[in-house]
Write a protein that binds this DNA or RNA. Structure first.
Lengths: 196, 196
DNA sequence: GGTATTTCCTGATTTAAGTCAAAGTTAAGT
DNA sequence: ACTTAACTTTGACTTAAATCAGGAAATACC
């Protein structure tokens, strides 16, 4: 399956709309296939996020670095997600975040301006965006809830139920950062979880 | 200014679109003015959130109660916000949250089904919704960042800069809960903040 | 206007999680 | 394959924040 076919599948499934051949040609003309090697950056702190990238293959982390030099992972992204800092993207402000490839990435990249064109001409794209924003809002809401009211252990269990594949795919120190924990604490939680 | 005029102002400002007289009549026919007294519930845990309410006047808290009986405030809402549990609203699942009036509330209430009608007939409503979802996504993203990577003190300072009016309007124990802190800890942070 | 309820502060103590340090393990790069 | 780098675990110690308990102040409400 080609990169575009993966994307067509995705948008049709999410929007519930079948794409016309014309639609597909518009996408093929304006979604730019791009590859990033592991460790390469999709976005650097301070830059404005002018593109979004649909992940066909690979994974990435969105993180910030605090004053002490500690890294905090805000998002872990895999196939069928979009890479972007939405705050920077929508407001055209410099981003506080870095987005870095964790595995070799295959993306379909599109500029802010082109996205507007898609909105204007392809209804399925609007419907897709709706669903994405809904899911994103709900996911973030749940994460806020977990962060302000769950213990470290509960947050880890929450991750196991909601994103079990993350554990297979990402090193534990990154999972720890994503949960807002030190790696040592996560290690101890996992050790204790084995003996109930 | 009538309740509807407040709403018309809001939607025109947010969407950047001027409402026609026809649009206004559609809203007046289907947005139902509703009053809730302090302590009354807009939504109870376990119920499906079938309505959203635009706040014309007053305030409310969205919270959950954990196993130990502790209350955790996820959202504090004031004028020009919508009351709803979006997860329950979109997915039609029972809500984990309660929404309770903190001050007497004046709402414009609308059902899920009616919102779809607005989408179909009033472009300004679509544009408004877009902006709301964007803002909501960004706000939640920032809150996740604060929760996983800021100290208690930084979270409080963040609140001061982003939502200074909350401090005038809500008691500190609620602010503490909103920040994921105990009231005692917030009290101590405020005491220390005075002597730098 | 006075009582009751909430809210807020303060001190003493406990606990969850962070930090530091070092060793063991696994994985990556050439 | 081998060497370096990245990741994980463990133990000892520290610290941030929670909990418990008491009292003061402010608000609500009849």
């Amino acid at each position: 399956m080609s990169n575009f076919e993966v994307f067509f599948d995705y948008i049709q499934k999410l929007s519930g709309v079948i794409l016309s051949e014309d639609d597909k040609h518009v996408f093929m003309a304006h979604l730019k296939p791009k590859k990033l090697r592991r460790r390469q950056y999709f976005l650097q702190e301070g830059d404005v996020c002018k593109y979004t990238g649909f992940i066909v293959k690979g994974s990435a982390k969105t993180f910030r670095v605090d004053e002490k030099g500690n890294e905090h992972i805000l998002k872990l992204s895999v196939e069928d997600w979009w890479l972007a800092d939405f705050e920077s993207y929508y407001h055209l402000t410099p981003s506080r975040y870095n987005i870095e490839a964790l595995e070799d990435l295959e993306l379909l990249q599109v500029s802010n301006a082109q996205v507007e064109q898609f909105f204007a001409s392809i209804p399925a794209f609007i419907a897709m965006q709706e669903v994405i924003k809904q899911n994103y809002a709900i996911a973030n809401q749940n994460r806020v809830e977990a962060a302000i009211s769950y213990t470290a252990e509960e947050r880890y269990e929450d991750l196991i139920t909601n994103y079990p594949h993350f554990l297979q795919r990402f090193p534990l120190n990154m999972i720890a950062s994503y949960l807002g924990l030190s790696p040592e604490t996560l290690s101890r939680i996992r050790k204790n979880a084995l003996k109930p």
